[in-house]
Structure formats: C-alpha cells, structure tokens
Write a protein that binds this DNA or RNA. Structure first.
Lengths: 208, 208
DNA sequence: CAACCATGCAAGCAACTGCTTACATTCCTG
DNA sequence: CAGGAATGTAAGCAGTTGCTTGCATGGTTG
C-alpha cells in the first residue's frame, strides 16, 4: 500500500503508463479524424489494442479522455516568446524564425487542434483553445514588431494587420496540409514559404 | 396527372417547396454547428418544425440531405473571375475588390463550409470541396497578378506566395469570426482589413 | 363530393453507444 | 507461495439514432 504513489509514477506492473498512453494516443488520433462522437470507445479500444473495459478503468468517462487530451494545448505564449529571445541581425531573420516556431507549434499539436476545430459546438470551451494559439501568435508578433519600430528598425504604423497576415498565411498552410491533405508546391515547400512570405511582409511593412 | 411537373416547380399545395426548404435549412444550420452526426434527424425535424417522418418522405436517407446541401458550393471560379472583370485604375483597387468578393463568397457559404470542415473524414469527398474555394481563389488571383506583371504594372516575380498570403488572411479572418466567434477589432473592422492588407501586399510585391 | 396529396401521429425495430458488473487470467512483489 | 494489481472476457442495460409502417387528418383540385 505504501508504494501506491510509485505505481502512478512509474507503473507498478511496468505497463500501467503504457496502456494509458496507448488509450490517449488512440483517442487523439480518432477524435482528430472522426470527431468526438465518431471516436467511439469501442473503436478507441481496438486501435489501442486494449479491451474496452480497460478504458473505463483508466478514465471515468469518455469526456475525461477529451479533457486529458486538451491539456496539451496550453502554455503557448511562453514558447512563442522563447523563440524570439535571441538578438536578430535584421527583421527578416526574425520573421523567418518566428514563422518556423509558430508552424512547428501548430504541427506538433495538430491532432488536438483538429479536435478543437471539430468539437467546436459540442464542447464550447474548446473553441477558445483552438483560436487561442493563432491569436496569441498574432499578439506576440505584434509586440515584437512594435518593439522594432521603437528601436527605429521599422517605420511606425499599425503592426496588427501585418501580424495577422503573417500568422494567417502559416495557419492556412497548416490547415491545407494537415487537415485537407492538399498536395501543392506552395504549401509543401515550407522553407521557401518562410523566406518569401517574410520578405513580402517586411517590404510591405516598410512602405505601407 | 398532367400537371405533375408543376407540382415540383411551384408546389401543388403551395407548401411542398417550403417544407423541403425548411428541412434543408435546419439541416444546414445544425450540421454546421454540431457536425453531421450531431445533427440527428430528430433535431432537424424539431428545428424545421416538421415531423421526423416528413424528412424521410422528402429525402431517402440522411446522407441525401448532406449531398443536397453540398451542391451549393460549386461554381466558385466563375464568380471570382466575374468580380475581376472591370478595368482598375490601380492594383490596390483591384486587390480590395477581390478581397471583398472572396470574403463575401465565404460568408455566403459559411454553413456549408463549416460542414465540409467538420465532416472531413467521415465523408472524404467534402474535404476537397472545402479546400477548393480558397485554392481556386489563390489560383485566380495568381493569374490576375501575372497579368498585371505582363502589362508592366508590377515587377516580375512569383505571384503565388503573395496570392496565398492574401487569401489566407481573409480565410483566417472568416474562420475566426464565423467559426470561433472571435470578437476582436482587427477582424471585425473588415473595411480596414481590406484596405490595409491590400496596401501591405502591394508594397510587398513591388519590392520583394 | 370524391380522389389525392402532403403531413401529422404513434409505435417500433435493429444497430450502436457509453458504461457497468461479475468473473477469470496473468504477472509482479513481498 | 500468497496477495494484489492490471488486464481480458462475456454479458448486458438503458438511451439514442436512422429509418419504417400503418393510420388519421386536412387542404386542394377535378
């Protein structure tokens, strides 16, 4: 009994964690694809290679699984700001770096983002989670651009629209590739997109 | 009997069309909100103010309703090109006009777009329908920009990335407002967004 | 008026879904 | 070896869902 907390940490039988993770992973995959309703507990159990009853031994209800999954989407702002910490030799370099950071953030969380997108109205909380990532990204970029303006590296003007354009571009590219499965060169050649979009935006900001 | 085709056109009892339309409208609304699965035939019938049986008298199956709804999303290219027919005094004016045309096209079809988005994997055909609208928009704008380049109004360079950026911006604004219900000034003040985004893009194209 | 047509209403069915219960099995640990 | 913890198996239950059937009703049209 006195080692019960150890069981939670490392798995008494050595598989406890593994099973739980397999269930979560299967649920994440299915919910992203088929939506919350489409991901039935039977299907989840099959994909996880686990008996259906086992699911309910690990999670009280099905919603509990969803809630567990959604936890991964928080703490975005911190990571975005972290990507902008170093000194940059020029604005374009900063933009490219930021684009990469943001895009990778999206890709890393793609399943959960899809779940949020799809589950919008059945679980209203998740909508905010979904929008929070791009909007935070706009916010952080906005602040950084304003900073550059104050330092005289950019002419003063409203940085919101350019920030929105930038974030939107990579959001759409992300959606097109990972939700819709679109296979076109503009979207697949990510390096070129980082580079080219940053260039256009920079020149746009300078004179608009 | 000889007037049976009239019944289809105007409704023998004068309500035939109306009922069918009410069902379609309720289904469109619910499926956009709750997804295909979430929009049960019972709920549809309630919202339409119609008995559930009536639904199955008008549509053989539930999928038939979905298929009927999806018909509204075609013929987009034509409309986009139509919006670019007139002569423009300058490029910026063209961009603003195009942005308006595209955004309104999205808003007009918002329910169906949401259905496509949400129903992605249960009905794989619809994904293509969903992506077809923005990608067609990119395509048409690309062609127009190339045209301006050939006429010497713009320096020659790859117009794909700027077109993608432009379309992405309004796609995201659309999603944020109508899917997520985001209420922020950058997105709500559409006129300013048309204007400002066009300006930035134009300057970006000119020098990048 | 009579035939017809769209609709409503009541009932239900087979399949599925989230979830539960009771019991057997296997493995680890003291 | 004994006890416990995690899992499997079998069965099922109550609610929902897409869809059907049979019958009654009320308005329209010839």
């Amino acid at each position: 009994m006195d080692h019960s907390f150890l069981d939670q940490a490392s798995g008494g039988r050595g598989e406890e964690q593994e099973t739980r993770e397999r269930i979560l992973s299967a649920a994440r995959q299915l919910m992203a694809q088929k939506g919350y309703k489409g991901a039935t507990t039977r299907k989840i159990s099959e994909l996880a290679g686990v008996n259906e009853v086992t699911i309910f031994r690990h999670f009280k209800t099905k919603v509990a699984i969803l809630e567990e999954l959604l936890k991964d989407i928080l703490d975005v702002r911190e990571q975005l700001e972290k990507g902008l910490e170093g000194e940059f030799t020029n604005v374009k370099e900063m933009l490219i770096t930021y684009a990469k950071t943001y895009y990778h953030l999206l890709v890393e969380r793609k399943e959960i983002l899809m779940i949020c997108l799809v589950e919008a109205d059945n679980h209203p909380e998740v909508v905010k989670l979904f929008s929070s990532l791009p909007m935070t990204a706009v916010d952080v970029l906005c602040a950084k651009l304003a900073e550059f303006q104050e330092q005289g590296h950019l002419p003063k003007s409203d940085p919101c629209t350019p920030a929105l354009m930038f974030i939107s571009t990579f959001f759409y590219a992300f959606m097109a590739k990972y939700r819709v499965g679109l296979d076109v060169s503009i979207i697949n050649d990510e390096e070129k997109l980082y580079e080219h979009a940053s260039e256009i935006l920079l020149e746009g900001i300078k004179r608009a």
